[in-house]
């Protein structure tokens, strides 16, 4: 039932700006793929193009080997969950979920008993049994979201597409639904693509993450790969927190304020560059080679860890680092720091 989804050189131009610039990638059968990017990066346009709600100027979308341009919306069998859910206000939960089954051409329409059974199964699946008589206006945000999902699943979609699935929910419900969706995907195994601007959501939920910027793919890979081995400055800055140090590269070393601070092994740069360092990759050391001097300006608690803000000469902002040990330096104290990992672009 699951299909391979191939996007081949997708291009789309809106009035003045390009929304998609030669996007290509493949989603394996049963894979859960996240399209992550800031607003205006083209991620929703791409999702709508896969669904067939938007026409591409160039390029193809393939379901297995079938070019979807030859298919009508009905033939594509897309399970699309809208950001607004787009539940039918004049129908109750049962009729909303049954809509896709009742809309089939007469010859393929299941019998009433089959529809009832199928909708019942889906209500169990999304844990809404007993609410079938309710109208959308009488449901909570999380319940509406699950009705929208059940409605999309009812047509046994070849591909499941979700546009900002948790965008309209509050933080607590969001977290619950996230793990629930992950589990549901494990059980149903649809090839799934979802759009989000929330990196935490993308990294936690997806098998692979495609990071979009200005209509092009910056990087595509597993959550670990995109987080630990960013391939561009954009990905570095977009994912997680990072310090950006202006450095000068020479002889395999990065110099900050004419002092060597990091060994740039294997990264072939010369001249001025930026060194990206995550807060957890700076540690406090006694003075030594490749160390960086600074004065502690502020300490704040960030959940389980403590975050140090250190003023460093020659750096306009403050260097942020996560404190590994329980012993914290005092504000105003001079410290030496060593960079354990970083990326140069």
């Amino acid at each position: 039932m699951s299909v391979t989804l191939v996007i081949d050189q997708a291009e789309k131009q809106f009035d003045i700006y390009p929304a998609l610039r030669g996007v290509s990638f493949t989603v394996e059968p049963g894979e859960l793929m996240a399209l992550l990017g800031p607003s205006g990066s083209g991620k929703t346009t791409l999702l709508r193009a896969i669904a067939g709600l938007e026409q591409l100027d160039h390029g193809r979308v393939l379901f297995d080997d079938v070019d979807t341009r030859r298919l009508s919306l009905r033939e594509r069998r897309i399970g699309f969950v809208f950001q607004s859910y787009a539940l039918f206000k004049n129908m109750n939960v049962f009729e909303n979920i049954a809509f896709g089954l009742r809309a089939r051409p007469r010859a393929k329409r299941p019998a009433e008993a089959d529809i009832r059974r199928r909708v019942g199964d889906l209500l169990d699946l999304v844990q809404l049994a007993g609410l079938e008589k309710r109208f959308p206006a009488q449901l909570s945000g999380g319940q509406r979201q699950r009705v929208a999902l059940a409605r999309a699943l009812a047509i046994e979609p070849s591909v499941l597409l979700l546009d900002e699935p948790f965008g309209a929910l509050d933080a607590k419900v969001r977290k619950d639904l996230r793990s629930w969706l992950r589990e549901l995907h494990g059980r149903t195994g649809h090839t799934t693509v979802f759009v989000t601007h929330d990196q935490e959501e993308a990294l936690e939920l997806a098998d692979r993450v495609a990071i979009l910027n200005l209509g092009a793919i910056e990087q595509i890979g597993s959550p670990d790969a995109v987080y630990d081995q960013p391939e561009s400055a954009f990905v570095c800055e977009f994912l997680g927190e990072t310090n950006k140090l202006p450095v000068h590269i020479a002889g395999g070393q990065a110099f900050f304020e004419d002092m060597p601070v990091f060994r740039s092994n294997g990264q072939n740069h010369l001249g001025p560059a930026s060194l990206y360092v995550r807060p957890q990759h700076i540690k406090l050391v006694d003075n030594g080679p490749l160390s960086l001097q600074g004065v502690v300006a502020h300490i704040r608690r960030n959940g389980a860890i403590r975050r140090l803000e250190v003023a460093v000469k020659g750096y306009a902002r403050r260097l942020e680092l996560d404190l590994a040990s329980a012993v914290a330096p005092a504000v105003g104290e001079r410290v030496a720091m060593k960079i354990t990992a970083g990326h140069i672009f």
Partner: peptide
């Protein structure tokens, strides 16, 4: 907006059905 209609169309409804329902 267009969301409701688009949802109906992706669910396989014809144009007429989308309009009337």
């Amino acid at each position: 907006g267009k969301d409701d209609e688009e949802a109906a169309l992706t669910l396989g409804a014809s144009g007429w059905r989308t309009f009337f329902k």
